[in-house]
Design a protein around this nucleic acid. Structure first.
Lengths: 293, 293
DNA sequence: TAAAGTGATAAAAAAAACAGATCACCTTGC
DNA sequence: GCAAGGTGATCTGTTTTTTTTATCACTTTA
């Protein structure tokens, strides 16, 4: 019996299939089969019932699962306690929503690199819905997205919220504002949904709305006078300072944007939760610094 | 990190040396070195300080030791809970004192074989002092010897005691008894020591004493009229029945012989303590059956 | 009924682990 | 003082283990 076998056993149990575990662990399916077979051989019992559509734990398998998870926790704790952070190796796959990417992400990455110099970071910037999918399908270890995710096996750490404000080109008159198209977040995002329903409630019609998946494009479009938009005030700051945007108040702004650090809390490494905590520190710092905007 | 590495780490820590651990684990010294090196490499810390005369744990090593022992216990528990006893494989090295060998050993072995059919048993019969050495040097897993062993890391389970009685050839007269040589246990045994000191106390001299390491030889010598001897009454039973021995009472008999099942309680398998428990059952049964002799 | 899913299996290839020989160093015994 | 026996580290070739590739037999889904 070795740790690879137990880890494999746990993944097969969790995902309910040999091939699924193989994909998760980046191994071939026969490798997984063989590890499970060796484990069953050594213990002299069947751990899984093979069914047409995957496998399910036998009652002995259920018993083993709790022990194996205990051992997995022990090992994870050993690494957390004993490995000095400068020596932590491996890859951390982080997904980031664009608002985060444009606010404190770079600070976070350098803090992370400072603490874990040997850690390889795989970064992807995408809309929250895609980040969620990637996270739940185990293709991502940690995501900074509009949360929290309600799934039971997901740990959510709330960041300080981003306030939204309406912005337009500095030369726009009050009359212009009423007729201007609205530049918005992606159709997939929560603020877009909220915006649409609010407009329907208030005016029983919506004018032109241009959704875009790219936050920076939104800023550029608003700054070039194409339309108006509800954007995070912290990020608008330097546009306002350079007189490329001005803020206005139509009497209503969408809700604050709430972002979370979200990660699966089933197996995985201690490093993920540590990175999330670090991100919270950085985000709090950023929030303090920009609190008076 | 794998279990072999942790197990190796524990043995090196326990024995305080790479070569010692290699002997214990039946592996070459480079194999041990390489496992430790891999573990230190993975964790990014030194686990041992290499000294002129072996190795000692660093403070990180001490930390790892407790975790590793926890994991070792978990694995041992898994095997105990999950492996059906008919499937238990491996080798159990048992050492037995001769008195046990001639009383209930065969019953024990068949009961053991019935419960663990695939278990290989390595048996050696020797005097208790040698059994103790073998046990403490990890060359034996379980010993039935004159105990208990006072060492802190030894578990002792007491068997019902063997009563001793004086036996001689049936034709011997009272006068013969006084002058007859005394057939005794091995010089290395506790009863021999006791016998000698008692004789000195009572008669301020000792006659001829023939110690022998072989209990059955003792019986044969007494039965052939060479001398008299204090022997376990249970074992003398069928000699008495066949009129080859008779019991007599000189007014004093040595203390009961107390045997124990003794085993190291540091690492090793759950199977050892199970076998010891089984032996106790068998010994109790034997004691009941021979209680009225 | 074709396409994509499931796990098992055999043979070949890749990777890991191992033993043997040797080195440098230290302690012990004569 | 010096040989004998102890310590761990390291290099090299071999053995053993593990993994992949290519299948098969079967089931579910479209």
């Amino acid at each position: 019996m070795n740790f690879d076998q137990l880890k494999t056993f746990l993944w097969v149990a969790r995902l309910g299939g040999v091939r699924r575990a193989a994909r998760e662990m980046n191994l071939s399916q026969p490798a997984i089969s063989s590890r499970i077979a060796a484990l069953e051989e050594e213990l002299g019992i069947k751990l899984f019932d093979r069914q047409k559509n995957g496998v399910v734990l036998t009652k002995e398998g259920v018993l083993l699962r709790s022990h194996a998870e205990q051992i997995e926790r022990s090992i994870s704790q050993i690494k957390a306690e004993l490995t000095p952070s400068e020596e932590v190796k491996g890859t951390l796959r982080i997904g980031v929503a664009e608002t985060i990417a444009q606010s404190w992400l770079s600070e976070f990455l350098s803090a992370l690199r400072k603490r874990y110099p040997k850690l390889v970071v795989e970064l992807s910037v995408d809309v929250s819905i895609h980040l969620r999918d990637q996270l739940l399908s185990h293709n991502m270890d940690l995501a900074f997205l509009m949360g929290p995710l309600p799934e039971g096996n997901v740990e959510n750490i709330l960041f300080p919220p981003f306030r939204l404000g309406w912005f337009c080109h500095p030369s726009m008159s009050h009359h212009d504002l009423g007729n201007a198209p609205i530049i918005s977040f992606s159709r997939l995002s929560r603020p877009y949904q909220e915006l649409m329903s609010e407009l329907m409630n208030r005016y029983h019609e919506v004018g032109q709305v241009f959704p875009s998946t790219s936050l920076s494009t939104n800023f550029e479009m608003v700054a070039s006078g194409i339309g108006v938009g509800a954007l995070p005030v912290q990020l608008a700051q330097h546009f306002v300072e350079s007189k490329r945007l001005k803020m206005f108040d139509p009497g209503w702004v969408p809700e604050d944007l709430v972002f979370t650090a979200s990660y699966l809390n089933d197996p995985k490494d201690h490093i993920v939760s540590e990175a999330a905590k670090l991100a919270l520190d950085i985000a709090n710092e950023y929030d303090q610094r920009t609190a008076d905007l």
